[in-house]
Amino acid sequence: MKRTVPLMIVLVGGVLMIIQYFIPHRISQDIFDNYTIWVPIIGAFALALGVGSLTRLHGHKVRNKAPNWPYSLAVLLPIYLMPIFAFFVPVSFGGGMDEPGFYHFAFMHIQVPIQSTMFSILAFYIASAAFRAFRAKSVLATILLLTAVIVMMGQVPIGELLGSWFPKLGLWIIDFPNNAAKRAIGLGVGFGILATQLKIIFGVERNWLGGAGE
């Protein structure tokens, strides 16, 4: 029962989703909408489980004074303080709805800059990854290096100054050899997705059921 019911739900839902793709009628669209509306509802319940998991993990570390436990405190405090400020002190301490409250401040002036900082690290990592990738250790690596130089030079004004063929050749590489490789991967991915979905719908792949799978 524990295994059959989820498998039946997936089979019926999967087949319905396949059929509705070919039926544009409103009845078909309504079935699709009613079926997919469950996803955010389940997500909302699962979020509570997620926060519970995080609390259990870090609470355990704080209680046992595990190594680096103050970091766990730095995780737990904002998790519970932010909703409290958002719900109970939505305006600033000075009063007035026009002035941003602590929640707004913490989001805009702490979380957003920290996230931007993390994102900006990417620029440095791209430079180091490019350095590693473009070392001409073999013939193929040398071809990659030359191709990358042409494409990059074709994207910047100095490339056109060196020769009008730079941007043209760069664009040709992007549009043809690069695009062909991307489409080949895309086709494989498409078929892979289809095969995986069929395996799940027809119960060949059951690992996603966790404890009920076997």
């Binding site: 389940i42 997500g43 699962a46 979020l47 509570a48 489980l49 997620g50 998991s53 259990r56 993990l57 355990h60 690992n207 996603w208 059921l209 966790g210 404890g211 799978g213 076997e214």
Partner: peptide, 27 residues
């Protein structure tokens, strides 16, 4: 969070199949 719940179940089941359910760490 949904992926978390499924991943937790998958790992728990894997430990069970391997015959070492006691080794599973909920954290």
């Amino acid at each position: 969070p949904i992926v978390y719940t499924v991943a937790e179940e998958a790992v728990k089941q894997a430990y069970l199949e391997a015959g070492r359910p006691d080794s599973y760490d909920p954290n």
